[in-house]
Simulated scan of single mutants.
Amino acid sequence: MGDVLQRGNFAVLAGDKCSPRLGGVVDQTSMLCAEGTTPGTTVCPGDSGGPLMADLPGRPVQVGITSFAGEVEGLTCGQPSPAGFTDVGRVREWALSPGLALAPVPEGVPVIKGEAKADGTLLCEQPDWRGRPTAVTTEWYRQNTDSTGFVFFTPIPGATTDRMTVPADVAGTSVDCLVTAYSGGGKVTVLADAIPIPAQ
């Protein structure tokens, strides 16, 4: 990603001409499409959140917020593709509403405490939150390794509260906990640092 701010000229496309070229993922009720007017002018990784401006008489006006482009169809930066933008005009009323609900924001990550051994009790201590969650859930996971050495985590059956008795069959692997906080503004998921469970 470069250090110099870039800009390019884009032309707005009709949704029915754009959506099929972006895998059908363009929500035409809240988004608009635009495509660079010169070769090589595309939306690239790192552009998300940037403005799409219209040069109106007297002053420029923001009409879109960059969301995605050809990566949804497997294209790379610079390959010809339209891009999807949040339509500012369609979300303006929601964005400026005084009672706008936002998702909780974690101040840190969960921390696993307790007896890290088979049949020991572990606590998944959730972080503090900015914005009060209406509900918080916890899920525990165990480490797995496939035949190629790839490491992945799968849920531990029944381990869905903040405390867990460590199953004997996870000894010799690692465990982790996932905390999800919900509110009227959405949900946020945060993951603890995994801890090892010694082999018996």
Rank of each mutant, 00 (worst) to 15 (best):
residue 83 A to F: 09
residue 84 G to N: 10
residue 123 L to H: 15
residue 196 P to F: 12
residue 43 V to Q: 14
residue 161 T to K: 07
residue 188 V to C: 02
residue 40 G to K: 00
residue 176 D to C: 10
residue 128 D to W: 00
residue 105 V to H: 11
residue 177 C to I: 06
residue 130 R to C: 01
residue 177 C to A: 02
residue 62 Q to P: 03
residue 136 V to H: 00
residue 118 A to R: 03
residue 59 R to Q: 12
residue 198 P to G: 07
residue 131 G to H: 06
residue 151 V to S: 12
residue 195 I to N: 02
residue 73 E to P: 02
residue 62 Q to K: 06
residue 66 T to D: 01
residue 26 V to W: 05
residue 124 C to G: 01
residue 122 L to T: 06
residue 41 T to V: 15
residue 190 V to R: 00
residue 46 G to A: 08
residue 125 E to K: 15
residue 17 K to T: 00
residue 154 T to H: 01
residue 13 L to K: 12
residue 13 L to Q: 14
residue 57 P to W: 00
residue 91 V to P: 09
residue 59 R to V: 09
residue 54 A to M: 11
residue 167 P to A: 04
residue 166 V to S: 01
residue 69 A to D: 15
residue 99 G to H: 05
residue 121 T to P: 04
residue 115 E to G: 02
residue 165 T to Y: 00
residue 180 T to W: 01
residue 89 G to P: 03
residue 200 Q to E: 13
residue 129 W to G: 10
residue 105 V to G: 05
residue 46 G to N: 04
residue 18 C to T: 08
residue 14 A to D: 13
residue 163 R to E: 12
residue 119 D to M: 12
residue 82 P to W: 08
residue 161 T to A: 08
residue 27 D to Y: 00
residue 11 A to H: 09
residue 34 A to R: 03
residue 35 E to A: 13
residue 66 T to N: 10
residue 164 M to D: 04
residue 89 G to V: 07
residue 95 A to T: 14
residue 94 W to Q: 11
residue 82 P to I: 05
residue 42 T to D: 03
residue 70 G to K: 04
residue 8 G to L: 06
residue 193 D to T: 15
residue 89 G to S: 05
residue 14 A to L: 15
residue 31 M to R: 12
residue 141 Y to Q: 14
residue 172 G to P: 08
residue 139 E to T: 12
residue 128 D to R: 09
residue 157 P to Q: 05
residue 90 R to H: 14
residue 39 P to S: 11
residue 156 I to H: 08
residue 49 G to D: 04
residue 111 V to C: 13
residue 115 E to S: 09
residue 87 D to F: 08
residue 88 V to A: 04
residue 113 K to Y: 08
residue 98 P to L: 11
residue 144 N to Q: 11
residue 7 R to L: 05
residue 114 G to V: 05
residue 165 T to C: 00
residue 89 G to F: 04
residue 57 P to V: 02
residue 172 G to Y: 07
residue 52 L to S: 13
residue 176 D to T: 13
residue 138 T to M: 00
residue 43 V to E: 13
residue 113 K to R: 14
residue 158 G to K: 12
residue 131 G to Y: 10
residue 120 G to F: 12
residue 127 P to F: 09
residue 148 T to Q: 14
residue 131 G to L: 03
residue 85 F to A: 09
residue 157 P to R: 04
residue 16 D to M: 11
residue 132 R to Q: 15
residue 29 T to R: 08
residue 158 G to Y: 06
residue 112 I to Y: 03
residue 116 A to H: 08
residue 37 T to M: 11
residue 7 R to A: 14
residue 158 G to A: 05
residue 148 T to D: 15
residue 178 L to M: 10
residue 101 A to V: 12
residue 100 L to T: 13
residue 192 A to P: 04
residue 46 G to K: 03
residue 86 T to S: 00
residue 192 A to Y: 05
residue 97 S to C: 01
residue 91 V to W: 03
residue 64 G to W: 04
residue 24 G to E: 06
residue 172 G to L: 01
residue 155 P to Y: 11
residue 49 G to L: 10
residue 196 P to M: 08
residue 191 L to C: 09
residue 103 A to R: 11
residue 34 A to G: 11
residue 57 P to M: 07
residue 165 T to I: 14
residue 64 G to S: 09
residue 200 Q to I: 10
residue 73 E to C: 13
residue 132 R to V: 15
residue 194 A to C: 08
residue 136 V to R: 00
residue 181 A to Q: 01
residue 182 Y to A: 02
residue 113 K to D: 09
residue 129 W to Y: 12
residue 50 G to N: 08
residue 115 E to L: 03
residue 152 F to M: 02
residue 11 A to N: 11
residue 130 R to P: 00
residue 54 A to Y: 13
residue 86 T to I: 10
residue 159 A to C: 06
residue 162 D to F: 14
